[in-house]
Write a protein that binds this DNA or RNA. Structure first.
Lengths: 352, 352
DNA sequence: TGAATTTGCTTAATCGGTTAAGTAAATTTA
DNA sequence: TAAATTTACTTAACCGATTAAGCAAATTCA
């Protein structure tokens, strides 16, 4: 077993100083007037023995790790999965590595993760924050650590945020339901005060109020988030109890999934017995029978903005730039689950 | 903006040496005979100012980072997503942080990732390796860096591996098809020489040969892995050309998805026109219409074994223990896609 | 009471890099 | 030809921790 070589080992081997090697490896040979001959010799050796500097030592010395931490609710959630993947790729092009972790939307877990990553001296954070972590975030802000929030944020904190217009998202979906002449429209959401959720709820409520319709809302406790079966059960009861509902809007990814499951159990036929729209699109929605209409978030644009905002914070000069909240529009992806068969012919007009 | 405190800043503040603080913080106060009074004082200060040691410095000094790297094909793949999540949780209970990255099953990407993580001095690796990275792995082995491969491995390399019995998985699925009296059974797989794939193919071939049936195989080029549409197109042509096929086995997650898409386009009815089984289960398979039969991998057990094997390598003493290849059985999860309606009544007997 | 031991710390080297400052030799300038 | 400058490096401090070794003061022992 070969022991890992340090820059000093190479220095000894080549009978030069460690500094010289460091300069060469960091492209400062010219600036520091290292002769071309010696530079070649060092580069050859490094190439031959495949030497790679210890990043811990380097980061410790220069005070930068070129690593950023990205905390999302769950890396296995399709929405977060695609965002993280794009962000990772873009950040790597900028010379940064991205490390991920799942918060489970749990404040304790998240606070601990932030600590761990701070201890590891990451250069910045991208966070889809759970509730009640204002203090942790505030401490990041105070210490001037580059930070971008996405998907949700705390209006009272001065941070850079990248969001979708959640209010407009549900509001537009409702207008679409109205065009299809639905009146008894249910809304299944989380019992959460997080801004993305409250905005979605507001969109639904405002739309219903404008049409003088009665709202019909099922809020699902946050603690159940891992227990698909229980959520399905609650939605089942909700739908069974409110037999008059003709259409349902699900406020988030996994509620849609559980909702579909519940509907299947109740043997309700989509879309003729009941129309469905889900917030957040899902790769598999086009494979379900019927395919599922969704309020899609512009994943690519969101990722681009996240990276852009973070880079502003990371670059010394721009770090003092004012913090921005970027709000992007959602897009309604119309599929079969929202269109009663009798209306299939004029779909084009409706979805436009 | 507060500047981050180092152990020396605290030392100055409290008029003690940095060593004393280090001992106290590492629970060596007794051993090093630090007085209880001073210990209290230090702990109070640390608590009050929320001091946390710089892990870069610590890791550099002690030569351990308590971080392990986990490289999978894609963190958004449902199979890998669930494994990573369990592994992360279990490793964190053992005091390790797990960092993830997607290899895209690309050798270049993976080789680079291994380098990056080695530079960052991670303590160990968990890898679902792409082809052609034997050299990178060999260098990890030579340097005695704890390593566990999973999902696939290189028989010629002496590594710890955690696998599923891929051969048996497809072989059993085939036996199940035979019981249902299917004879013209197709197999859609990747054009890959990776062991998990070749084993699945062998299972299919052996089963067909034993029944003296003609095989009917579609291999899909590996380069297309990101291009769902093209894969769907190929499968569509394959199925259209081989009209006699009564049942199809898809060798992997995303082939199943594309296959279902192709079948939908061809308006073939599952399961009556064609029966379907997919290798790898998927949370959404129970929501499709019809629900999809799958060869499920025991995700929990796989994760447990991965962690167990890695811990053996990580613990100095056991690091010399012989390397093992753990092989776990798959489980056939019978759903609607494989059972012709006429046979629904005797499902119990068949699936058992 | 003087020596030995114990107590309660501190000193200083170290991990593997980076980088400002220094220096001897070669070259140019005056 | 002596002084000034340039060349091509080296020296050594530093980043923030850990830890073996050291050492004065207090206590115990003989």
């Amino acid at each position: 077993m070969r022991k890992k070589q340090s820059i000093h080992d190479i220095a000894k081997e080549l009978k030069v100083s460690a500094a010289t090697i460091s300069y060469v490896l960091n492209g400062k040979a010219r600036e520091k007037r290292i002769s071309t001959a010696l530079e070649k010799k060092i580069l050859n050796y490094v190439e031959k023995y495949n030497y790679r500097p210890n990043m811990l030592a380097k980061s410790l010395r220069i005070g930068k790790s070129k690593v950023i931490a990205m905390l999302v609710e769950g890396i296995d959630d399709p929405f977060f999965a695609s965002i993280t993947r794009i962000v990772e790729k873009e950040m790597s092009q900028k010379g940064y590595k991205t490390f991920f972790a799942s918060t489970e939307n749990d404040p304790m877990v998240t606070i601990e993760l932030i600590k761990v990553f701070r201890d590891a001296q990451v250069d910045g954070f991208i966070i889809a924050p759970p509730p009640d972590i204002e203090d942790s975030l505030l401490s990041l802000i105070k210490d001037n650590i580059p930070l971008v929030l996405f998907d949700r944020y705390f209006p009272e904190l001065e941070t850079s945020n990248v969001m979708v217009d959640n209010f407009q998202g549900t509001y537009e979906a409702m207008q679409y339901f109205f065009k299809l002449n639905y009146k008894h429209i249910g809304f299944v959401t989380l019992d959460s005060s997080q801004i993305q959720m409250s905005e979605r709820l507001k969109g639904y409520k405002k739309a219903m109020r404008e049409k003088h319709l009665l709202t019909c809302i099922q809020k699902i406790s946050f603690e159940l988030r891992q227990e698909q079966k229980k959520i399905t059960e609650i939605i089942k009861k909700f739908l069974a109890k409110n037999g008059h509902i003709e259409a349902v809007l699900f406020a988030t990814n996994y509620l849609s999934i559980s909702g579909l499951e519940a509907i299947r159990i109740l043997k309700i036929k989509i879309p003729n017995d009941m129309a469905i729209i889900g917030f957040d699109d899902n790769t598999h929605f086009s494979l379900f029978t019927p395919t599922v209409t969704a309020i899609a978030q512009p994943v690519r644009e969101l990722s681009d903005q996240i990276v852009k905002q973070l880079m502003v914070r990371l670059n010394g000069e721009g770090a003092q730039a004012p913090k921005k909240t970027i709000v992007l529009p959602t897009r309604l992806v119309v599929r079969e689950s929202s269109i009663p068969t009798k209306m299939i012919t004029n779909v084009q007009n409706i979805s436009g």
